[in-house]
Each structure stands twice: as C-alpha cells, then as structure tokens.
Computed example of a mutant assay.
Amino acid sequence: MHLRVTFVAAARSAALLAERFEDDRPLDQAGWNEVQRAAHELLPLAAAELRYCSPTRRSRATGDALGYAPLAQPALRDCGMGRWRGFTLGEAMAREPEAVDAWLADPRATPHGGESLHAFISRVGGWLDTRPVDDGGGVVAVAEPSVVRAAIVYALKAPPATYWNLDVRPLSTVTVTGRSGRWNVSLGGTVGRT
C-alpha cells in the first residue's frame, strides 16, 4: 500500500512578510483573508483520515480555519535557528556575516547553535517515513513553507542545497505519495489567490 500526504503551506503572517527565522507570530489579517478565499478549494482535504500541523500558531490557525482540527506534530516544527531565532537573514548577516555564509554553503553547519539544514530535512523526512500506511483516507499536514520545502527535498532525495531553490507560497499544496524511501511529489499549486 502507498501513503498519500498532502502538505498545505500555512497562510501568511507578519513573520512571513519579514522572513524571520523560527518566528511564531499568528496569522495577520491578510493571512485570514487568504484562508477565507482558499477555504472552498482546501476544505475537501478535511476528509483526510489523519490531520496534522506544525506546532506554530499560524499553522494551527490555518488548519483550524479550514476545518481540519489538526494534531500538532513537534517533528513538523521549523528549523531550529538557535541564537538567530527571530532575526531576518539581513539581521543575522549584519551580526555574523561569516557564520551566515558558512550556514548557507554547508548543509551540516550549525553556526547559529541550532539545527543544521541537513538535520532539519532528515527530521521532516523521518516524520514522513513513519506515517501509518494509508487505508484510503489519506493524510493532510499544515506546516510552515520551510517544512514543506524540506519534505520536497527529502522525498526527491535531492541534495540539501536544493532547499534554497524552492519557493513554497502560503496555502499552496504539495502531495507526496509512496512509502518510506520511495516517494513521488505532485505540486498542487497555490489556491485562493485573485
């Protein structure tokens, strides 16, 4: 049997607009408006047998607003950024330019004292690999765009540097089908946009 996991990228928050590391701000008004516009397209995913979300406030709020009543999964949290938590990339670069360069160049680097990109991708992939076999009901997971990017890289067995070349928009969907070690990726697009 194969598993079908549809990831829904959380709606926007002020953190997304500022692109802050591991920031847990709630949905902003624009995010709430986007969820309302997208609800008719994303609501059918509420029929999934298992419904999860990352533990961030915006992921939970997105899932709840879509009627998913998701269960928070710690493994779907954003990459641990250590002392850079809450910083923008520009702020981290201004304070520690060599450390940021090392982090961007080496997927195993942890100059911020947090989690490496490699470890982050492996954590998200480990969660994916341990989902129960699909009985036809499927799985939906609302998560930060960074988590969706990590899942794509893992599923495709792509080099970790591929992560930097993926753009996941709020409320876009990505479906991963297969089983542990053998995944296919289907890009669903962005919904609710005018």
Rank of each mutant, 00 (worst) to 15 (best):
G126M: 09
Y163D: 11
V148D: 07
P170N: 11
G136F: 08
P111A: 10
R182W: 02
V133P: 06
V142I: 15
V153W: 14
V148N: 01
H112T: 02
I152N: 04
V147F: 05
P145C: 04
V185D: 05
V176Q: 01
G114N: 06
R179M: 00
P170W: 10
D167Y: 02
V148L: 07
E115G: 11
S172D: 09
I152K: 01
P170S: 12
S186F: 08
V147Q: 11
A158T: 02
G125Q: 13
G125P: 11
P111L: 04
R131S: 06
E144K: 01
S180D: 02
L166S: 05
A109F: 04
G126T: 10
P111I: 07
D134A: 08
L128A: 02
L187H: 11
A150R: 04
S172L: 02
Y154L: 07
T175H: 06
P159S: 15
G126K: 02
D129S: 10
I121K: 11
N165A: 09
G137Y: 04
I121A: 13
G136Q: 06
T175F: 02
S122Q: 10
A141F: 13
T177Y: 00
T130H: 12
L187K: 01
T175W: 04
A109S: 12
L128M: 15
A141K: 10
V148G: 08
A151F: 04
G192A: 08
V176K: 01
A150Q: 04
A119W: 00
V142L: 10
N165P: 00
V147D: 12
V133C: 12
V185R: 01
A141S: 05
A161P: 00
G113C: 11
T110S: 06
K157R: 15
E144N: 12
G181D: 03
G138T: 03
G137I: 02
H112D: 15
L187D: 09
G114W: 05
P170V: 05
V168H: 04
T110E: 14
K157C: 12
P159K: 15
P170E: 10
A161E: 13
F120C: 06
V185E: 08
W183D: 12
G113E: 11
T175Q: 14
R123M: 03
P132T: 03
D167C: 05
T130Q: 13
Y154A: 03
R108E: 15
G181E: 02
L128V: 12
G113R: 09
G136S: 13
W127Q: 08
D135T: 14
G188N: 06
G137L: 09
T177Q: 11
S186D: 12
L156Y: 00
A150C: 09
V174Q: 10
A151W: 01
V139E: 05
V174I: 14
W127I: 12
V185C: 08
P160A: 14
G178I: 06
A150K: 01
Y154T: 00
I121Y: 06
P111Y: 01
S146A: 13
S146V: 04
R149L: 02
G181A: 03
E144V: 08
G188F: 01
G181S: 02
W127E: 14
S146R: 06
S122W: 00
W183R: 14
R179W: 00
I152L: 12
R131M: 14
P159W: 10
R123L: 05
R169I: 00
P159A: 15
V153I: 10
V147Y: 09
A155Y: 03
G178A: 05
